[in-house]
Structures are given as C-alpha cells and as structure tokens.
C-alpha cells in the first residue's frame, strides 16, 4: 500500500511517527499551515513557522524517506487577531516557493466577518499564484459553515476542481459533491470521521474527488489512520487498485494541479528523497541521516 497523507501536521509529531508511517507505506505528505494551540502574537512568529515548514520539517521528513510539501495561509482562528493580519502581506513570497502546493488552511472557525474577509483575500491569492486551495470547515455549526464557504468559493470564481473542502462528514459531503469541489475527510480516533463510516461514505458516493487524511497534530490523533482506512476498504471488498486510487492517485491529482509536487514514484519530476545532491564534487544524498548530537 503506497500512501500520500494529504493533511498531517508533522511539526507536532515525533521521529517514531515518521518511522511508523514509512513502515505502513506513507511516502508523501502535505502539511498545512495551521493554528499551533497557543495563539501567536506577531507576524514574525508566522514567518519562522512557515520557514520551518519549508525548511527543517521538509528536511526531517526526507531523512525518513517521505516527501514533504506544505500549504501556506493565515488560519481562520488567528484571522480574528489584528496583530496577525500582516501575515497576508508576506504570503505572496511564500506562495511562489517550490514546496508550497496550495493555499491553506483557510476557511471558517467562528464565522466572523474578519474570517470571511481573510478567506476571500486568500482565495484571490490562490488565483494570483496559480495554486489550488485547501479549506478547513468549522468544528462548530459545520453545515452552515460549509454552505457559506461554498458560496464564497463560487463568488470569488475559483474553479471547483481546484478547491478541497476538508474535515467533512455525513452531513456536509453532499453539499461539497454538489458544488464539484474535492471532498476531504479527516479520520480520527474519537472525533471527526472513523474508518468504517469513511468506507460507508465511499460506498455511497464513489471514489471520485475524495481525499482521506489523518490530520494528525498535537491533539489525540493517529498518523496511521490513512493506512487503517485502506485496511478497512480492503475488508469492505474494495480492491488494491481502489485503495491506491484513494490514498495515492487522488491526492497526487489534486495537489499536482500546483505543478509543484516532487515525488520519486516516477510519475512526476523526481527529486526529493531519491536523487543525489552534489556538493563540491562530493555526492551527498538528500535525506542522509543526521546525527543530532
């Protein structure tokens, strides 16, 4: 089973997780920029976080044979803090970089006017930088938030196939399917979705335009939930090819719209984790283990 986790916050995870993920078949991830649990108070704090996503975390993943990409945005929660709004001014610089495959996570938390203003501006930025968008749907009042999100996406005029609406469930999936956007599902130990409900949704609406992720972070979560969903699909009668479609080809198709995925599966421009980097005539593998003594 080869797995592309299209939403996982690896800065919050350990090297044990990277090893377990590789052993389970994870070869690529997308890490969306998000809230850190502790609210930030300045733009500089975001700059260091974004640099970490595109620098150290990418390098750390490559040490474990996993290609790491990021989505960059001002998240909905912190869109409400005026001290953080300057992040919008630094986004254009980040949205040009190689490892950035979408604008995200944008969306609603409490559905405030500030959140809506920031979401609209970032949807426009996605168009200006020719990137797809990853939209978080709120944990509270999810159906209303999802409906309003889809209205805004339509008003801004982004093609629906370039928009992923994430954290869906039985109550919101049809809205997203009807809009023609990609449907994302976060499979969690005891909130959001679980493996069996995920399989039931797949049986009902099919395997088109669907992404399954672990969304693992610093909360109670499991970076192997993608793998476990694949196992549940097989137990439910799906074929290996069906699992490969959901857990690999679908995320490659969605994020591949950025033109910036770097995978070594031979299907795309291969660099990360595979080829040799040459320093002053000496070959040094990217991802060579580092002694962190």
């Amino acid at each position: 089973m080869r797995i592309f986790d299209p939403h996982i916050h690896m800065t919050s995870r350990t090297t044990d997780d990277y090893e377990a993920m590789y052993a389970a078949g994870v070869r690529a991830v997308v890490e969306p920029a998000f809230w850190l649990g502790q609210p930030r108070t300045s733009v500089g704090s975001f700059v260091d976080y974004f640099d970490g996503l595109l620098g150290w975390e990418r390098f750390r993943a490559s040490q474990f044979g996993i290609a790491h990409h990021a989505t960059i945005a001002l998240n909905p929660k912190e869109a409400n803090d005026p001290r953080c709004l300057g992040v919008l001014d630094v986004l254009p610089r980040y949205l040009e970089k190689d490892g950035v495959v979408a604008v995200g996570e944008i969306g609603f938390d409490s559905m405030t006017d500030a959140e809506e203003t920031v979401m609209v501006r970032q949807l426009e930025l996605a168009g200006e930088h020719d990137l797809p968008v990853m939209v978080h749907t709120p944990h509270r009042d999810k159906v209303a938030g999802t409906r309003r999100t889809l209205e805004i996406v339509q008003q801004v005029g982004l093609p629906p196939e370039r928009v992923l609406v994430d954290h869906l469930n039985e109550k919101t999936v049809d809205l997203v399917d009807d809009a023609g956007c990609w449907a994302g599902f976060s499979v969690y130990p005891d909130t959001k979705m679980d493996e069996d409900r995920m399989v039931a949704i797949l049986e009902r609406r099919g395997l088109d335009r669907v992404l399954v992720n672990s969304a693992a972070d610093w909360g109670r979560s499991d970076p192997l939930k993608t793998y476990r969903t694949g196992q549940a699909m097989l137990a439910g009668g799906y074929t290996d090819d069906d699992v490969d479609r959901v857990l690999w080809r679908n995320p490659v198709a969605f994020y591949g719209q950025s033109g910036r995925l770097l995978l070594d599966d031979g299907s795309l421009d291969a660099t990360v984790g595979a080829s040799a980097a040459d320093f002053e005539g000496n070959t040094l593998q990217r991802g060579e283990p580092v002694g962190l003594a």
Partner: peptide
C-alpha cells in the same frame, strides 16, 4: 542549522 545540505554548502 542541522540541515546537511546547508552545512555542506
């Protein structure tokens, strides 16, 4: 940094 690509360069 601990990024070997940067340290080498």
């Amino acid at each position: 940094t601990n990024d070997t690509r940067l340290v080498a360069a």
